[in-house]
């Protein structure tokens, strides 16, 4: 299989696809979900994220909102990666994602489609778009542990 990150056309297609048909894009009215509202301090990105955790497994993850291509696609890809993972696995994925964004070593196989954001730092001001929901998820998982 060709590596996604070396194929700009494929990267673009993945991003556009997740923007135009975002996965897990619908919130649910259910108190057993934990919810977080994340929004950018500097632009219009505004996303609500929900997770359902049972026995340390992220059984469901959903989102809704109004955001740019990068924020929307990165959230959609994140939900696909995380759904069904244990908390431990999810944390590993999150850690690898932030390593990639910060130009450190990361596991390409762990991040799958999320590697499309590998070069987001080329426009420094867009890093916050690509990490908005990822930071939100991190916070949700931390809150889950504290409760």
């Amino acid at each position: 299989m060709n590596s996604i990150k070396d194929n700009p056309i494929l990267k673009r297609e993945i991003m556009m696809d997740h923007y135009e048909s975002p996965r897990n894009f619908q919130l649910i009215d259910d108190n057993s979900y934990r919810q977080i509202h994340v929004y950018s301090q500097s632009c219009q990105d505004d996303i609500k994220l929900q997770v359902l955790i049972n026995n340390d497994i992220i059984e469901d993850i959903r989102f809704e909102g109004n955001a740019c291509v990068i924020a929307t696609a990165s959230t959609s890809i994140m939900t696909e990666l995380i759904k069904g993972c244990s908390i431990k696995q999810a944390k590993e994925i999150i850690e690898n994602y932030f390593n990639m964004i910060n130009q450190k070593e990361y596991g390409e196989n762990i991040l799958k489609e999320a590697v499309v954001f590998e070069s987001v730092g080329r426009q420094v001001n867009r890093i916050s778009c690509a990490t908005l929901s990822w930071n939100g998820l991190k916070q949700l998982l931390n809150e889950n542990e504290e409760s």
């Binding site: 673009r12 556009m16 923007y19 291509v69």
Partner: peptide, 10 residues
């Protein structure tokens, strides 16, 4: 275009 906007970070 949306495609060109995406290309900005590829």
């Amino acid at each position: 275009t949306l495609e060109n906007c995406v290309d900005v970070i590829l």
